[in-house]
Amino acid sequence: MDMSNLTDAMASRSYDKIASICDHLMLKVASEGVAFQQDWPYAVHLLAHLYLNDLNSARFLWKSVPAPIKESRPEVAAVWKIGQQLWTRNYAGVYDSIRGFNWSAEIQDFVAAFAERYTGRMLELLMNAYSTISIQDTALFLGMNENDATNYVLQQGWSVDTASQMLTVKKQAVVTEQKIDPSKLQRLTEYVFHLEH
């Protein structure tokens, strides 16, 4: 089983490509009748789907993992624990699951990249959903202590009211197309016509 594409993607930190590489490889070896289950990098494959926020694919992959592998490889179960927290929208639980396992050197950077990406998604969610939010709730969503969460969002341009312990969200600038008022267009047309005649 040639895993060089997967190894190269992991080495170059092309984490967004890993799910499709693993899916393709799995289909290829399964179609050739090769027994791959014992050697398959299930933890990496599961995490790759979570990295892309593809919970359904991760769930179906988890269901296809043989029971002996689920029981004998704690790292595979630890990745799935992250998936379970995502599925139930337990935002703090996602971070607890990430921190609650001693990841192998092979997957440690990938888990860190997932955590960073997940924090970015949570920040975007907060910016879209709130105009003000408590420091405590922000810390819960971002998986940080209150001090770190406050510093993190202040770097994003938010402001803090220390008296009320509330953060004011800095909304992202929304680019909209400018629509032309038909009456203005009509006046412009008349003006240009008047100049020409």
Rank of each mutant, 00 (worst) to 15 (best):
S131V: 09
L52K: 12
A105G: 04
P68K: 09
N128I: 08
V65E: 08
Y91S: 11
I21F: 02
R99N: 15
S104D: 14
C22R: 00
K28F: 09
S14K: 13
L55N: 12
L50Q: 12
K17H: 07
D16G: 07
V44R: 05
F114L: 07
I21E: 06
I98L: 10
R89V: 13
S72F: 06
V79T: 03
L50F: 05
I21Q: 01
A105M: 11
D39G: 12
N128L: 08
P74C: 05
N102K: 14
L27G: 10
A19R: 12
A30W: 06
A105K: 13
D39V: 08
W103F: 01
L50N: 03
D23Q: 13
I18L: 04
E71H: 11
P74A: 14
G93R: 07
K63W: 00
G120L: 10
L125K: 14
T132I: 13
S31L: 08
D16E: 15
W40L: 12
W40P: 00
A67F: 12
L125W: 10
E75R: 05
S134C: 04
L86Q: 15
R121I: 02
S64V: 05
L125Q: 08
R73T: 13
D39S: 15
G33A: 07
D54F: 02
A115D: 10
R99V: 03
R99A: 11
Y42K: 10
A19T: 03
I82D: 00
S134Q: 05
F110S: 07
L52R: 11
L47W: 01
F101N: 02
I18K: 06
F60H: 12
E106F: 05
A92T: 08
I82N: 02
D23E: 14
Y130A: 04
S72L: 07
A48V: 07
A115K: 04
F60D: 15
F114S: 04
S12E: 14
W103C: 02
R117L: 13
H49P: 13
E106T: 11
I98N: 07
N90P: 05
L86K: 11
F114K: 05
P68H: 11
V111A: 04
I82T: 00
A129W: 00
F101W: 10
S72K: 13
H24E: 15
K70P: 06
A48M: 04
D109V: 03
A35W: 03
Y95H: 09
Q37E: 15
F36Q: 02
Y91T: 09
N53K: 10
S14W: 01
L47D: 01
S31E: 13
V29C: 02
V34F: 11
V111Y: 07
N53S: 15
D96Q: 13
D16S: 09
A19L: 10
S134I: 06
W62A: 14
W80H: 14
D39I: 14
N53D: 15
E32Y: 04
Y42V: 07
R121L: 06
T119Q: 15
Y95I: 02
C22W: 01
D23W: 05
I82R: 01
L86P: 04
S72E: 13
A67G: 00
G120P: 01
V79H: 03
S134M: 03
V29E: 07
L55Q: 09
Y130L: 09
D96S: 12
W103E: 06
Y51R: 11
A43P: 09
L55I: 13
Y95D: 04
L47T: 07
G120V: 00
F101V: 04
L47Q: 08
